[in-house]
Nucleic acid binder design. Structure first.
Length: 268
DNA sequence: ATAAGTGTTGCGCA
DNA sequence: CTGCGCAACACTTA
C-alpha cells in the first residue's frame, strides 16, 4: 500500500538516481495499465531525458524533456533501478537508459503508468482532481476543508479528491492518535478534534518518512523501508492491548474498508 | 485444494 | 453530496 510516505520517498529517490538519464528503450508487458496505446506511450517517452519527480497524493509525477510520466502503484509494488542483466523476476513496464541501467516497474494489483504530453497535466483527470497533499495542508486549511461536511471522518480522509495521500493502512493510527472513531460524523467534530487530527496526520507521515517509509515496500535500490508493525499503535493489532488504556484492540468493518480501533480511546 | 481477504480507484446507482 | 457495491492486472492465509 503505497501511501503518501512511500510515494514521497520514491520521488526523492528518483530525483537522486534518475535525473538526466535518457530513455533508450521501453518494454510494456501490460498495456492495460497505460492511459494511451503502447505506440503512443513509446512515441511520447522514447529519447526523453528524465527531469524532476514530485509526489502528488499517491501519484509520482515525473517531468521529462518530452512530457510527463505518471505512476500510481495501486495496492503495492516496486520501482527498481537495476542493471539490465539483473532484472527482477516480475515487472510490467521497463524503461532502459543509455548507461545500461533499467527502471523496472511492478505492482501486484491495480497500477497505472501514464503518459501526458507537455502542458497536458490539467487534462489528466486522475491527478487533476486530487485534493491538496495531506502533508502540505496547514491547520487552517484543514479546518476549511472540513467545514460544512456531513459524512464520516474516515470516508473523508480516504477520499483523494478531498485530501490526497492517506490510505487504509496509516489511517488506523492517524485516527487513534486523534481519539476519533472512523465512523464519527464530521459535523460533530470540535475545533480541538480537528487540530489534533491535523497534527496526527503530520506526525504519522513524518515518522514514516524519517524511517524511509513502509518496510513492506522496496525502495528504488531494492532496500526495505524502516517503518513497520513495531511502529503501529493499533493498526493490524487485533486482540492486542491498547498502548494507552490497555483495552483490547478491535477489528471492525467500517463501510467498505476494515478498521482497527481501540474501543475505549475511540468511542463514537 | 478452494476461497476469502486485501493496501486503490472509478463508476453507476440509491 | 454521501454511501455503497462492484470490478479490475495477485498473492497470502485459513
Amino acid at each position: 500500500m503505497p501511501e503518501l510516505p512511500e510515494i514521497f520517498c520514491r520521488a526523492r529517490e528518483m530525483n537522486e538516481s534518475l535525473r538526466e538519464r535518457v530513455i533508450t528503450s521501453i518494454e510494456v508487458k501490460q498495456p492495460q495499465c497505460l492511459n494511451v496505446s503502447v505506440e503512443a506511450f513509446e512515441a511520447g517517452l522514447l529519447g526523453s531525458r528524465i527531469d524532476d519527480t514530485h509526489q502528488q497524493g499517491k501519484w509520482l509525477v515525473t517531468d521529462t524533456s518530452q512530457g510527463h510520466l505518471l505512476i500510481n502503484l495501486g495496492m503495492g509494488g516496486e520501482l527498481l533501478l537495476v542493471e539490465r542483466h539483473a532484472l527482477p523476476e516480475k515487472w510490467r513496464i521497463r524503461f532502459d537508459f543509455e548507461d545500461g541501467l533499467t527502471l523496472a516497474i511492478n505492482f501486484w494489483w491495480f497500477g497505472n503508468v501514464h503518459y501526458v504530453e507537455p502542458g497536458g497535466l490539467a487534462n489528466h483527470t486522475m491527478t487533476a482532481k486530487l485534493g491538496p497533499n495531506a502533508m502540505d495542508v496547514t491547520v487552517d486549511e484543514f479546518h476549511a476543508l472540513l467545514a460544512g461536511r456531513r459524512g464520516r471522518i474516515k470516508s473523508f480522509l480516504l477520499d483523494q479528491s478531498k485530501i490526497a495521500g492517506i490510505g487504509n493502512a496509516y489511517i488506523h493510527d492517524i485516527l487513534f492518535r486523534a481519539g476519533l472513531h472512523p465512523l464519527r460524523s464530521i459535523s460533530t467534530l470540535q475545533d480541538q478534534d480537528i487540530d489534533l487530527l491535523h497534527q496526527s496526520i503530520q506526525d504519522e507521515f513524518r515518522r514514516s518518512i524519517a524511517k524511509g517509509a513502509a518496510n513492506y515496500e522496496l525502495n528504488l535500490l531494492g532496500a526495505r523501508g524502516g517503518f513497520g508493525a513495531q511502529d503501529l499503535l493499533v493498526g493490524y493489532r487485533e486482540g492486542k492491548s491498547c498502548p494507552v488504556c490497555h483495552a483490547l484492540i478491535e477489528k471492525q468493518k467500517t463501510g467498505s474498508t476494515t478498521s482497527y480501533i481501540c474501543p475505549q480511546c475511540q468511542a463514537m
